[in-house]
């Protein structure tokens, strides 16, 4: 009995310390992003809350098992100078221990599946419903080897670029965005057997969606903070599925801005596009 109490007390103390550190981590970072380091979207927040919840339980479970193992290894070891002998207790079964363990692990796993997994998925699915995405900004995303191409059909922007001509994604804060994701190369649209799987990932948004050749995927989310790649490099579009030699370079800058700044940017893009098209004397998708 004394050993059981000792394990329990050590677990309470060591586990308590570990939980204190865990909670400090959870409450750290901008907007309590904690373990996610930087979260700036509604879907990312769903994942973050699930992560925080599981982390607290995982740390407690980890500490319990480690304390049981370490305590046994220290307390029941054959000490220096002692002769190895048969263990005094040869108990091969303890219904209470086995019962608590099995029932406990079943209950915990069911709990984790209901919350945060199923409840989190409810929140994710709800965020994808049309009624929650009224007035969504549509961004067509074409993933090709190796480039992200963003176009804004509602504003007639065919390929959003920054002043250096690199692809860039601009989003107004707190407005739903509908990403329409295709693995497609506008410059080589006759070579569809060479299209590969990419994965559209913005680390700061806490979500990625695979982009599969021959399929159109939709992803709805709401950017919740004004930020940009310059502010934090987690705010970037990054391909997350290996797609050939250029995979590491397949990234693009992201700017989340005020609605006013977004409107100004749209005008700037239109101007830029018109001047390019005037230069080339054509209107098409050769950009």
């Amino acid at each position: 009995m004394g050993d059981l109490v000792a394990v329990f007390v050590i677990w309470l103390v060591a586990g308590g310390l570990a939980e204190w550190a865990t909670v400090s981590w959870i409450n750290s970072g901008p907007w309590d992003s904690g373990p996610y380091f930087y979260v700036a979207s509604n879907l990312g927040t769903v994942g973050l809350h699930a992560f925080d919840f599981l982390l607290e339980f995982a740390v407690a479970i980890f500490m319990l098992v480690v304390v049981m193992i370490a305590y046994s290894a220290v307390r029941f070891r054959v000490r220096r100078g002692e002769r190895p002998s048969q263990a005094p207790s040869q108990s091969r079964y303890n219904g209470t221990f086995v019962g608590v363990w099995i029932v406990g692990s079943i209950v915990l796993n069911l709990l984790f599946w209901i919350h945060p997994t199923a409840s989190g998925l409810e929140a994710v699915y709800a965020a994808q419903l049309p009624q929650n995405n009224k007035n969504a900004l549509i961004v067509d995303v074409a993933a090709r080897q190796w480039e992200w191409i963003f176009s804004y059909p509602q504003y007639g922007i065919q390929q959003a670029v920054n002043n250096q001509g690199f692809d860039a994604l601009w989003l107004p804060v707190n407005r739903p965005v509908e990403f329409v994701l295709k693995s497609y190369d506008p410059a080589h649209n006759y070579e569809n057997i060479d299209y590969v799987i990419h994965s559209f990932w913005i680390p700061a948004f806490g979500v990625k969606e695979d982009v599969v050749p021959g399929q159109t995927r939709y992803l709805y989310l709401i950017p919740t903070h004004i930020t940009s790649t310059k502010t934090n490099e987690m705010v970037r579009v990054q391909c997350a599925e290996v797609c050939g030699g250029g995979h590491p370079y397949m990234e693009a800058d992201v700017h989340v801005v005020t609605p006013q700044a977004f409107a100004a940017w749209v005008q700037h893009q239109k101007h830029l596009q018109a001047s390019i098209l005037n230069l080339e004397g054509i209107v098409g998708d050769e950009s």
Binding site: F76, R77, S89, S91, F97
Partner: peptide
């Protein structure tokens, strides 16, 4: 987890040569 259950149950009150 059953592998852990058996291992920890075996360690408990053993005469462990570390």
């Amino acid at each position: 987890g059953f592998a852990y259950l058996a291992a920890i149950g075996t360690l408990w009150r053993s005469r462990l040569q570390v």
